[in-house]
Every structure is written in structure tokens, then in C-alpha cells.
């Protein structure tokens, strides 16, 4: 079988493969934000554990991260969480077969379950947008109290 050429797209294929709808990109960003949040979270557990060692230890650690660079990083994390949580809620509903209607007879032009759940997609994305803007306003007040 060495004569076959493997035509898999590889990891790049997660991100882009052709002119597909929003959901394929939503899936990719879900994955990306998930990995980012996990990276932060695994550090977060150890950093916040310092609160158990008294006020001095806590202020020392917190003053280390109380810088504009980290604040912007935390805002990126906040955006990622808002997206991941709301898109995740949509995927959770979809994966349990909710808000997607019933199987229909495939009559051309075909309608798929994607189209039927798309209103939910737009609602959660709009909500995520609102939350991200609110977080942005909160961040501005950090820089200009």
C-alpha cells in the first residue's frame, strides 16, 4: 500500500478546508480558546494557591502580575471564556439534538440542521459580543480609574 499518497489536510485542516459555514470556524475557535483557557487555568490553580500562605505571599505574587501586559492578557482570557462558554452552550444543545428540528425528506435545494440551529448561533454570538464589550469598559476603568 506504499503506493498511496496520504491526502489528509493535517492540523491546518482543522482551521481551513474550503468555503464552509460559520459552524466550522466556530468549532476551530472553540478548540483554540479551550486550549488557551486550559493553559491559563493550569497556572491559575498554582498562582491562587498562594492565598493559603498569608497576606505577604499573596501580595508578592499579585504585585508581580498587576501590570498592563497581564491585564491585557487577562482580558484576552475573558474574551476567550465568554466565547467558549456561550458557543459551548450552543454546541451542548446541538449535541443533545435540541433546537435542530426533525429529520426531513431531502428535497432539493437541501436544508440541513445547521440552518435550523443558526438563529441560536447568532443569539449566543451577539451575547458574547455584549459581554466582551462590557469587559472592555471594565478594563478601561482599570487604566483610568
Amino acid at each position: 500500500m506504499g503506493r498511496l499518497r496520504d491526502n489528509r489536510l493535517g492540523i491546518a485542516g482543522w482551521g481551513y478546508a474550503g468555503r464552509y459555514g460559520f459552524e466550522r470556524y466556530a468549532y476551530f475557535f472553540q478548540r483554540l480558546t479551550g486550549l488557551g483557557i486550559l493553559l491559563y487555568f493550569s497556572l491559575h490553580i498554582f498562582v491562587t494557591a498562594y492565598r493559603a500562605f498569608g497576606e505577604q505571599a499573596w501580595t508578592r505574587v499579585m504585585s508581580g502580575v498587576d501590570k498592563p501586559f497581564f491585564k491585557l492578557g487577562e482580558y484576552m482570557l475573558f474574551m476567550a471564556v465568554a466565547y467558549h462558554a456561550l458557543n459551548g452552550l450552543r454546541v451542548l444543545f446541538s449535541e443533545l439534538g435540541l433546537f435542530m428540528g426533525k429529520p426531513i425528506r431531502p428535497v432539493y435545494p437541501y436544508e440541513t440542521s445547521l440552518k435550523r440551529q443558526r438563529p441560536l448561533f447568532f443569539i449566543v454570538m451577539a451575547l458574547a459580543g455584549v459581554i466582551i464589550v462590557m469587559g472592555g469598559l471594565d478594563l478601561i476603568r482599570y487604566f483610568r480609574p
Partner: peptide
């Protein structure tokens, strides 16, 4: 993960 690309591309609906 419900990326949905399969449903979109399916030529038979």
C-alpha cells in the same frame, strides 16, 4: 464536534 461541514457539503442532503 458539530463543525457541520459534512452536512453542508453532502450532495444528497
Amino acid at each position: 464536534h458539530y463543525a457541520g461541514a459534512c452536512s453542508e457539503a453532502c450532495p444528497k442532503g
